[in-house]
Amino acid sequence: MLSTRVHVGIDRCRAYTAGIAVAKMIALKEIGIGFALDNFGSGFCSLSYLKRLPLDQLKIAPAFVHEVLEDSADATADSFVALAESLGLAIMAEGVETE
């Protein structure tokens, strides 16, 4: 298996769950292209969609990242990390830039 050097961000779960789209994503993964779900938590993406898509990474929406920065007791981030781990996905926080 090739190492993944390029990640394509997708932002709408439902648009990619059709059989042909998933098949094309799997073919692209076979040549080293990975997929990340952008803005996770801000749209409509059910857990069943997450399980069907050949994703490599979840990118947490900036709104949730800012909530964690404001309230360190917020359990949302912990639940996102646990979900990503259970699905075997990497996780990244979006919107943490300071400049």
Rank of each mutant, 00 (worst) to 15 (best):
G9Q: 15
I26Q: 15
A18K: 11
L83A: 08
S48D: 13
R14E: 13
T76E: 10
V96H: 10
T17W: 01
A27W: 00
I91N: 01
I10Y: 02
L69M: 15
S86N: 13
S48M: 11
Y49F: 11
K24W: 04
S48P: 01
V22L: 08
I26T: 14
G19T: 12
E99Y: 10
F44K: 12
V22E: 03
M25N: 02
A23I: 06
A36G: 06
M1A: 12
G88L: 06
Q57P: 06
G95W: 00
G34E: 05
R5P: 05
A90E: 10
L58E: 04
R14N: 12
N39T: 02
E30K: 14
A77D: 02
D71L: 10
D78L: 07
H66M: 14
L53M: 09
D74R: 06
R52T: 10
G34I: 04
A84F: 01
M1L: 13
T17I: 12
L58W: 02
A27F: 01
A21D: 11
E99M: 15
A77K: 03
S42F: 01
I33D: 01
R5E: 10
P62S: 12
V8W: 04
L58C: 03
G32A: 05
L69G: 13
R14H: 11
K24Q: 15
Y49L: 07
G88M: 07
N39G: 09
C45E: 00
I31A: 06
A21S: 13
L28A: 15
I31K: 03
M92G: 06
A63E: 15
S3L: 12
Y16K: 05
K59I: 03
Q57N: 13
A93C: 07
R12Y: 05
D74Q: 09
I20N: 15
A90W: 00
D78R: 09
G19V: 07
E67Q: 11
A23K: 13
R12D: 11
G32R: 04
M1T: 09
L55P: 00
C13G: 11
R52F: 02
D56E: 08
R12M: 08
E67P: 01
G88H: 05
N39Q: 12
V96W: 05
P62K: 12
N39M: 08
L47I: 07
I33W: 02
G43P: 03
S86C: 08
L58T: 02
A63G: 12
A73W: 02
A82S: 14
E67R: 10
V65C: 05
M1F: 04
G43A: 11
A21I: 03
E94S: 06
G95V: 02
I31H: 06
G95D: 04
F40E: 00
Y16C: 07
Y49R: 05
C45S: 00
D38G: 07
G19K: 14
I10F: 03
I91Q: 07
D71H: 10
D78T: 09
A36T: 08
A82Q: 14
A90T: 06
F44L: 15
T17G: 00
A15E: 14
D38E: 13
A15L: 12
K51A: 14
T17M: 04
L83T: 09
D11I: 05
A63T: 09
F44G: 08
